[in-house]
Design a protein around this nucleic acid. Structure first.
Lengths: 95, 95
DNA sequence: TTTGGCTTGTCAAATATTGTCAAATTTACA
DNA sequence: TGTAAATTTGACAATATTTGACAAGCCAAA
C-alpha cells in the first residue's frame, strides 16, 4: 500500500464513506478507487485534488504523499544506486 | 542539461570521440545520442550500461546520475511539496 | 562556400499507464 | 450460517507518454 492510498482509506473510513461514493464524486469506477487506495493505480494530480476536496482533507498533504509515492516507485527499481541518486537530487532542491 | 548527459559528453570529449561513434556502438541515430547528452531523451538502463562500457566509465556512476535525473524530473513538477515528499521517500531507504 | 559534426522539429511506432467490466472474494449482520 | 452489499482482482480496452528515425537546419573550421 502506498502512502497516499493508506491515508485516503483512513480518511474515508473515518467518515464512513463507501468506495462507491468517492468513486461517484470522481466519476470513475469503484474498482479504480479500490486500486488507488491499494496502490495499484496512481491517481492523477487532479484526482488527488478532488479526493482532498471530497474528504475535507488538506490538499497539500495528499499531494505530498502522492509525490512521495512517485519518488519511491522511481527509486525502488534501482536500490543499488538509490541512496546516492537521492543525495544528488536533494542538492538542487531548496527547502 | 542533465547530470548524466553532461557526464557522458565530458567523457566522450575527453576521448575525442564523435557522437556518431557512440551512436553507432549503441545502434541508434546520431540525433538521438545528441538528445541524450542534451537531456532531451532519457536513455534506457541498458543504453546507459552500454555507454559506460564504450566510454570505459564506471557503470554505477552513470546509473546513479541516470536515476538522479529521473528523480529530479519527477519532483520538478511539484516544487511546492517536493521537499517534504523527498523527506518521506528518504525514510524507507537504507544507506 | 563547402564539409563535417551537431542540433532540432515532426511524427510514427513502441511502451507504459489508466480505467472499465465481469467475476471472485470478503465482510457485515440478520 | 445465508445472503446482500462492499471490496478486490484479472483481463483487456482506451489513453497517454516516450522513444527514435528522418529530414532539415545551424555552426565552426578550413
Amino acid at each position: 500500500m502506498t502512502h497516499l492510498g493508506k491515508r485516503i482509506r483512513e480518511l474515508r473510513e473515518k467518515q464512513n464513506l463507501l468506495l462507491r461514493q468517492v468513486a461517484a464524486y470522481l466519476e470513475v469506477d469503484t474498482a479504480l478507487m479500490s486500486k488507488i487506495e491499494r496502490g495499484d493505480r496512481k491517481p492523477s494530480k487532479q484526482q488527488v485534488i478532488n479526493i482532498a476536496k471530497f474528504l475535507n482533507a488538506n490538499e497539500d498533504e495528499l499531494l505530498t504523499l502522492w509525490l512521495a509515492d512517485k519518488i519511491e516507485s522511481t527509486i525502488v527499481e534501482e536500490p543499488k544506486v538509490a541512496y546516492q541518486a537521492m543525495k544528488i537530487a536533494n542538492k538542487n532542491l531548496k527547502r
